[in-house]
Design a protein around this nucleic acid. Sequence first.
RNA 1: GGAGAGGUGGCCGAGUGGUUGAAGGCGCAGCACUGGAAAUGCUGUUUGGGGGCAACUUCAACGUGGGUUCAAAUCCCACCCUCUCCGCCA
Length: 430
Amino acid sequence: MLDLKQIRENPAAIQELLDRRGAGQHDLQPLIQLDQQQRELEQQRSQLQARSNEIGKLVGKKIKADPQGTEVQALRDEGNQIKIELSGLEPQEKDLKAQVEALLLTFPNLPHQSVPIGSSEEENVEVRRWGDEYIPQNPQILPHWEIGEKLGILNFERATKVAQSRFVTLIGKGAALERALISLMLDRQTQAGYLEVIPPFLVNSQSLTATNQLPKFAEESFKCSQDDLWLAPTAEVPVTNLYRDDILPLEQLPIYHCAYTPCFRREAGSYGRDTRGLIRLHQFNKIELVKLVHPSTSAVEHENLVKDAEAILQALKLPYRVIELCTGDLGFGAAKCYDLEVWLPSSGKYREISSCSNFGDFQARRGSIRFKEAGKKGTQFVHTLNGSGLAVGRTMAAILENYQQPDGTIQVPDVLQPYLGVKTLGLKNQ
RNA sequence: GGAGAGGUGGCCGAGUGGUUGAAGGCGCAGCACUGGAAAUGCUGUUUGGGGGCAACUUCAACGUGGGUUCAAAUCCCACCCUCUCCGCCA
């Protein structure tokens, strides 16, 4: 959520930053007008209320001396008069306030000054590339879904029968490989200083609002119709919301968490895209890294978060590149974002495997996550950051392709061998 | 699902209509005492919105939303949540 005070004081500057995401898409003007109306009403209302409070106190005093006195009656009459006026004013102001709030929630975050300006993903910037030497030279590499089904470790048909399209069943060593990846990632990230949590996988609307999925992206999540509960689209939601409405003592910052959770996404609007394989499923596993930090450190924390995610790809010797998203491609809540893209030989492309964002105080404001510095008056919003470390299904896809041997077996990456107990995946492993 | 209890400040906990943003305690901060500390004493200690350069001022908040009243933490209604017991179940 943007800072209303900032918008009031500096509308042109804020508008300019919003326009970097796409000119004319986010007009502050209606918001500014509503806000002004609301404040005018609030002034009127609180003045009336002040008088009403005064009357209440006076009556209390006088009624002891002379319950039937004319003075008391006069005050009561005035009180009633004010009540009538308030009954008109109050709902109006409340309504305006709700409108301001609702409108404010629809504005995306301001891109950080350092974010390259651009209108689409075409203008994203490659920051660095790693592992060129690990790019396989074998031209015969099968797409991961084909080799996976051949080896009997992935099955899409049966998953479709059980649920729907865009689900998968992992079988035998496929399931074990997924589990091994989860363990590897959690082990590495906890060693890097992230405190592991297993949060609820269902979250309420308030939580989704704090982390930007609501109100704008309701159709992206699965909702439980009987309850105010949704299937979490990412662990970012439950983990960040562990601290919703908290005022943290300064000493508690920074907070680092990692979490393994399944993630559930409706993928509405992506019909026809990545229909095959593990790339875009309704349910997938992910290790998420979440940080809550002091605002002055968030830029450095962001760079470090990216490195922590990269460390997994490096450990697995999977070729990847780091992309910085331009203003036009930046996610709704992000102030700055790097994507990690892993090399997928079958399509000859880099594909997103992690997205690492700095949200600044955008989410903290929505979720009221603050900290207090001893001695200083008032509270400040923390900065929140998160990134995948990594998407497990996509990692599996990358392994099934990059480690695919000419004989159709899969070499198990060195770091995974202790977890999996075998060096290759082949037919005999079924 | 059935029965009961309960939701008050960072925490514990009092408060059943009147000047209570809320006793008391704990915790925390400052000061005094001390060589230093403990103990003790005193003082302070919620958050959010509006107005103001500021000092300050005003409104709101005792689970949430309504209602009664000049006045509600306190009364009424609805909802949510937590706990205990019973039932069912992994």
